[in-house]
C-alpha cells in the first residue's frame, strides 16, 4: 500500500500546535490585555517604537514562523474538526483550508519582507 503524503500537512500542523500552545497565549496576553490596559506604558506598541524591532530580519523570521505555523495548524484543525462533526467532502474542505493557509502564508511573507 502506498505511503501517505499526509506528513506534509501534519508536520506543519504538529509544529504549529506546539508553537501556538507555547507562544500564542503570551502574545495574546501582551497584545490583547497588557498593552490595552497600559501595563507596559501608553506607547508600548506605538508604530515608532515597534517598527524598528519588527523589521529586524531575525524578528521578522520569528514572526513569520509563529504566524505561518499557527495558520497551518488552524487550517488542519478546522479540516479535522469539520470531519469529526460529521461533515463529508474531506478532500474539498482540505483543499479550501490549505488554500486559505497558503494565501495567508504568502500575505505574511510579503507583509514582513516589505518592511
Amino acid at each position: 500500500m502506498a505511503k501517505s503524503n499526509k506528513p506534509i500537512v501534519w508536520g506543519l500542523f504538529a509544529a504549529g500546535g506546539t508553537v501556538s500552545a507555547f507562544v500564542l497565549p503570551a502574545l495574546i496576553f501582551v497584545t490583547g490585555l497588557a498593552v490595552p490596559l497600559g501595563i507596559f506604558g501608553d506607547d508600548a506598541l506605538s508604530h515608532e517604537r515597534i517598527y524598528p524591532f519588527v523589521s529586524h530580519w531575525f524578528v521578522s523570521l520569528v514572526l513569520f514562523g509563529v504566524i505561518v505555523l499557527s495558520i497551518w495548524h488552524a487550517a488542519h484543525r478546522i479540516r479535522i474538526t469539520l470531519h469529526d462533526f460529521g461533515m463529508r467532502g474531506d478532500g474539498m474542505i482540505g483543499t479550501v483550508a490549505y488554500f486559505a493557509a497558503g494565501m495567508f502564508t504568502l500575505g505574511t511573507f510579503f507583509a514582513l519582507s516589505g518592511m
Partner: peptide, 16 residues
C-alpha cells in the same frame, strides 16, 4: 510502515 504509514493507517486517526 507499508501499512502503518498508509492513508488507512495512522493518518486516518484524528486524535480523538
Amino acid at each position: 510502515q507499508e501499512e502503518v504509514a498508509s492513508h488507512e493507517g495512522i493518518w486516518e486517526c484524528s486524535f480523538v
